[in-house]
Design a protein around this nucleic acid. Sequence first.
DNA 1: TCTTTTCGGATAATAATTATCCAAAAGGAG
DNA 2: CTCCTTTTGGATAATTATTATCCGAAAAGA
Lengths: 150, 150
Amino acid sequence: MIDRKEVRSLFKSKGVPLTHQRLAVYEELQARHDHPSAEDLYEKLRGDYPSLSLATVYKTLQTLHAMGLVSRVDSPASQARYDAVTAVHHHAVCDACGKIEDVFDPRLDDLPAPKASGFKPRAHSVHFHGLCAACAEGRRSNAARRSHHG
Amino acid sequence: MIDRKEVRSLFKSKGVPLTHQRLAVYEELQARHDHPSAEDLYEKLRGDYPSLSLATVYKTLQTLHAMGLVSRVDSPASQARYDAVTAVHHHAVCDACGKIEDVFDPRLDDLPAPKASGFKPRAHSVHFHGLCAACAEGRRSNAARRSHHG
DNA sequence: TCTTTTCGGATAATAATTATCCAAAAGGAG
DNA sequence: CTCCTTTTGGATAATTATTATCCGAAAAGA
């Protein structure tokens, strides 16, 4: 758990101004574990900060994410991608160009199910994040696709 | 590989009309493995079907997905969700109500990396899909959240 | 407190996706 | 093959999530 004092010094060390809004968003996010959306946070916080803007929540989340204080759940992909291969397989997503490769590996198909919590799993998928061969090799040409695909 | 004849009988068995557009989208999706978006498919197919509409591609993909002929890559979540827990952990997503639970299990933290293809992995995450305790128990009340969250 | 820089709020803009409406094509019976 | 009924496809408006823009306001440091 990162307390307020640590947060303050972390912002200072990175030269990022710590505003009331940023602290409020971060502390709200720390206090709950239901993975709220920007909208959810906005609805909750506007009670305490009536002048708060939804755009500010979005910008703040980007800032916190860039600092590594929060993480995004699910994919940052803005477009849905489809696949005619419905057999169980996994994916490797290139962070640089957005390319998605199939990963077939039987060792990934049978993973330990979530314990406790009463969750009934039906399926799972593993997403690897990293760099595809082309981008790892330094060919930045592919990066253009990123802006195109989101 | 599902050939045209099988596709035709599958549609018939489910009572879903098989149109030229549906067949075209499905066969194009079968022919490639770059996980195209609706937009990508539209751009490609409009050469052969000049009257094709983007909305039709979207509707067709939904139809094919509902029939289990194609799968969606990445998350179907329409809103980004955030988390103040940045330690390595995984997620269990309820297909009924959209709730996302954290899954901590060290056995999931060290999985075999994708072989070949030259992909350089930096991180990975496992997404379980299924039903949360409340939904599995039959409480449908939560389903309302789904439409709210997307 | 004063100055400079960066941020926050309001709102317009953008991007992806879905809803709407009617002509048109699919499926089945004869 | 033709007719009839039902469901789809095309064009476009609408919706939703997110980002950009512009200017007053707050933060950081001296």
